[in-house]
Design a protein around this nucleic acid. Structure first.
Lengths: 243, 243
DNA sequence: GCCATGCGGATGTCTATACAACCTGCCCCT
DNA sequence: AGGGGCAGGTTGTATAGACATCCGCATGGC
């Protein structure tokens, strides 16, 4: 099982061996692997060596480890959700159209002074008053993405007082302020989540994140919304049409 | 330095402490941290514990470890390269416009049978002959992205024989085949690289990747190109305009 | 029936030690 | 002066053992 004279470290050989077993279906998603102690006996190595291999595999996302319970083969990668982005993207419609159940929760709403990045995107002076609205969106009850929206405060007076009424953001903006934002551009990046986002999205800190920044204008061309959305990388496939 | 009664594991406290020191500029990018043995003495813990902390920090990309030499604070994050994607994106033009030096190398060219995903995107039958052309692109001499292009074989006869002539792909396609691909849609995902891509892009396997899939049509509307591009997550910010 | 307690098994953390592999610079020999 | 080789420092791997913490289940008392 382990060739002690191959010149390859034991834990790497273990990783390769177990990865193969998973690929060959010896262990299926959700199956429990032998406990660390059992693996020690199987491979004739120290528990520390076993752990090094397990940590490596867990880092790759092939397995997950639950304290007090055991190590398990990671589930089949959840089906990627194809999220279409267009000039007027509406989360709720978007998700319902493909037969999934959308959900949303306001995480945070407050009026703040715009930092440079926000002010620049909203075409305001640094320090101008803006309304920050952070929303967590769910698909089939599971966290999918977090969006931090910024609006110029003078365009959305009293938004914070009505925060409980928000279910569909765009319906809300249209109804109360007559605003119909249209996307002008988006940028895409792949990074890692900060501790807060990781906890909120219920992913580990070394799962990748797809970050989309967007600016929206009103019908008169003024920028009325700037948003930063962090999508779970393991769930999201974002598509953009060029037509 | 380490509170042995805080209930927080030593290695996590160490990670936090060192992270703060780096953030505060006690250690600057490129600086060598104390050796593991020295850190043992400083924090009064076992070398194993020190290593656990170092591994964690290295995993986050805050430091990098060189065997036989030491551990160093990772360089300032490389400036993100803003890569604009539009209907007709041309890598070389794109990069030169922002004052950077583009480069490209063909990694692999061959004629293969289309698997389902490729065939579907090219509107062909599964198993149809397609030309696969994999290119590595550089910015300022450093690997930036890998693109795997697929073309229907009947549209690009003899492409493989002329492979050495390719410098700008679109110039090449236009000159030899009169093809002027136009992007119809793109999808964006955040994942991790496979071993090959990681090595080619010179990143570790736990750096995130931004994967963009695109389909291109010719002037008559038929699909003539399907491509999958893996961008280095630490370098790339891809922007799309909706105009 | 129901909750509490405890036990065994699992992973999490930490210490101590040893040797291997790699890098650098110094010293010595030519 | 130049090259080879050795010494010492650094990280990489592996072993052995100990205790902590968490989970699930069974047992027992109410």
């Amino acid at each position: 099982m382990i060739d002690k004279n191959s010149g390859i470290s034991y834990y790497r050989q273990m990783m390769e061996y177990i990865r193969k077993q998973v690929e060959d279906g010896v262990y299926k998603p959700g199956d429990r692997l032998p406990s660390e102690k059992e693996l020690c006996a199987i491979f004739h190595v120290n528990r520390h060596t076993v752990r090094q291999a397990m940590m490596g595999l867990a880092g790759c996302g092939l397995i997950y480890i639950e304290r007090g319970k055991g190590t398990f083969v990671a589930g089949n990668k959840p089906e990627l959700i194809d999220y279409k982005v267009s000039r007027r993207t509406r989360f709720t419609h978007n998700i319902m159209e493909v037969g999934l159940i959308p959900g949303a929760r306001v995480l945070c709403g407050m009026e703040v002074a715009a930092v440079e990045r926000v002010a620049g995107n909203l075409r305001l002076e640094t320090g101008a008053r803006v309304v920050l609205l952070e929303m967590l969106r769910f698909i089939n009850q599971e966290p999918f993405c977090i969006t931090t929206n910024y609006f110029p405060a003078h365009l959305t007076p009293g938004l914070l007082a009505k925060i409980d009424e928000i279910s569909s953001l765009y319906d809300f903006l249209d109804k109360h302020y007559g605003l119909r934002p249209t996307r002008t551009y988006s940028t895409f990046q792949a990074t890692f989540p900060g501790p807060d986002d990781a906890a909120t999205l219920e992913i580990s800190r070394n799962q990748p994140l797809l970050v989309v920044e967007s600016a929206m204008t009103g019908e008169d061309g003024t920028v009325i919304q700037y948003s930063v959305t962090r999508f779970r990388g393991d769930r999201s496939k974002i598509s953009v049409g060029f037509d």
